[in-house]
Amino acid sequence: MKRLFTGWSWIPWLTYGAAAGLSVALVLIAGGSPAASARALIESSVLSAPALGESLSRLTGILFSALAAVLAFRGGVLNIGIEGQFLMGGIAAAAIGPMTGLGAASMPLALLASALAGALACLPAAWLSESRGVPPVLSTILLNLVFAAAVTWAVRGPLRDPAGDYPQSRPIPDEQAISTMVPGTRITPAPFLALAAAAGLAVFLWKTSPGLKLRAAGDSPLAAKSAGLSDVKIRTWVFLGSGGLAGLGGGLEVLSVTRRLYDPFATGTGYSGIAAALLGATDPLGAILSSFFLAALGAGSRAMEREAGVPAAIATIIPALAVLAVLTHRAWRERGQ
């Protein structure tokens, strides 16, 4: 049986061919040039410093969201509310700077607040899960809608920029923001912070005793319980930590990319993070790779619109096809094993 599958191991690779073929067909139907699209996709995501800067600026949010998902899934918590926790982190970061008036010193404070806000955003779901038996996968989806409305309210209420009537928060002044390191690009320290966080999470999960306990609890709650570990306690900490990472991502997004809170603020970053975590085999290092892949695909697909005239609708489809292709490939391979 195994030999049969080994002999046919090229089959899963067809999924990529199918995804690419479908993409080409769609571009052709829309009257675009596949070659120009391909060039735009690659050139504008990785092939120059400014292009790389754009991919990296997308990487920060996706990778932090992915790390949040890795931590949660490893600890046995299906936290799908990363989008909402990311939003709450953004709200906190946008609130702290202008409110405290601390100048440059407010930046670390804002990041701390955003992590805290992300963690707090998990509490309702954690409580519903432990005391009401509501699966987090469902409660967090509902909370995402609530937190999106919280952004809608914040930018029109307490955080509204008094200059002008537009629903947006006050701008983050330069000295409180995370600025570019390479002039002419948007390469800031933020994505490198995300990479460091990924390394830190990897060490925590694989090399420390709390990390081991966490994984044990995630793999088999019953076994962990019988080994004397409090699974409720672990799950709650995992939930808070996961929310903290997501919130930090939202805070960094405000401080390094948008410099204000807007409505809508994150359109799917949290969900992309979940996709990246799963594509990266729920491993922090794998998540780096898949997050970068999704970030580059995001930047590249916009470039296809801009430079090859591909409709926005198709630029939405192509990353989805890519994710489905990876999914199919993985699933097929695992069937063979």
Partner: peptide, 18 residues
Amino acid sequence: MRRTSLALLFLFLASVPG
């Protein structure tokens, strides 16, 4: 892990239409 990385890299090239 390595298989995943390879898969992703390959996909990046393969998803580039034509």
